[in-house]
């Protein structure tokens, strides 16, 4: 029969991928929108239990690449910031099949779950017949629709540091409607402010450039400062992002995207750096 393989285990899937010419199929919601070639062969991953885990250890929230959004929303382990982003993705029928691994592998700058993995500095575990690679998610993105995933590799898991995922957060998705909206701009920010000091700040902007924007050096301007010092630096911090962000044009103008980015960053700053 043509059209694909349905492996029952990880090793079988990796053997098939090592043979070349196959496309991993997780939830299919991105793949099925694209016009596929007549000879496309999918490797269907839905029966591989290793790719469906959701758990926590002492340091990380760990989820398998083939966890659907619905499964992640229902799990008590899933961090609130990730649940908030996922709850605004698409609509129930899509959340029932779409997976977090597919969202990342598709390498869209508009990927809402990937935005959360970026702001929390998650690690991506990639597996092939040759072995395992663990890559910071920021290094995975090479360009619009291009991820550093080799043809024989599968994303197996995401490791999200709990020290980041459990921080107070700010998340906003700007779309044209409530459901089934593709982000026009999305923003996530997390902040660790305690004892009058800013210990950690991270932000990420989606749907703005060819890849999700995560500028650690700009957020680092605030790290280690007292709250008063950080607040005094607000103008400089916002100006640094204003200079750094080079928005793409799309259904909305670059000017609009940049203005929204500034507004969301300002709202995050005011609500969390205090």
């Amino acid at each position: 029969m043509v059209g694909g393989y349905i492996p029952f285990g990880m090793q079988e899937a990796l053997e098939i991928l090592a043979g070349g010419g196959c496309v991993p199929y997780a939830g299919g919601t991105d793949l099925m929108v694209k016009e596929s070639a007549a000879d496309t062969r999918y490797v269907f991953l839905h029966r591989i239990r290793d790719l469906k885990c959701i758990t926590v250890d002492a340091e990380y929230f760990i989820c398998g690449a083939c966890c659907t959004y619905t499964e992640l929303l229902r799990s008590r382990h899933t961090p609130a910031i990730l649940k908030e982003a996922i709850s605004q993705i698409a609509a129930p029928a899509i959340r029932n099949t779409a997976t977090i691994g597919g969202n990342v592998a598709n390498a869209s700058p508009k990927a809402d779950a990937a935005l959360i993995l970026m702001v929390t500095d998650a690690l991506v575990r990639l597996q092939s017949k040759r072995g395992v690679r663990i890559v910071p998610i920021k290094e995975l993105y090479l360009g619009r629709g291009v991820a550093d995933i080799l043809p024989d590799e599968l994303i197996s898991e995401f490791w999200v540091p709990l020290s980041r995922a459990r921080l107070p957060y700010f998340y906003e998705k700007v779309g044209a409607r409530k459901a089934l909206a593709i982000s026009r701009v999305s923003f996530a920010g997390i902040a660790d402010v305690s004892g009058g000091r800013v210990n950690h700040v991270a932000t990420a902007f989606g749907a703005v450039e060819d890849v999700i924007v995560r500028r650690e050096e700009i957020d680092g301007m605030l790290t280690g400062l007292s709250v008063a010092e950080a607040q005094a630096l607000k103008g400089e911090y916002l100006a640094a992002y204003d200079a750094a962000i080079k928005p793409i044009r799309g259904r909305v103008s670059a000017e609009y995207r940049k203005a929204v980015c500034g507004n969301l960053l300002g709202a995050f700053f005011d609500s969390h750096i205090k």
């Binding site: 199929y25 099925m32 999918y42 029928a93």
Partner: peptide, 10 residues
Amino acid sequence: VNSCMVAMGF
């Protein structure tokens, strides 16, 4: 599920 977004192997 949306059946337009599901391949038969799934």
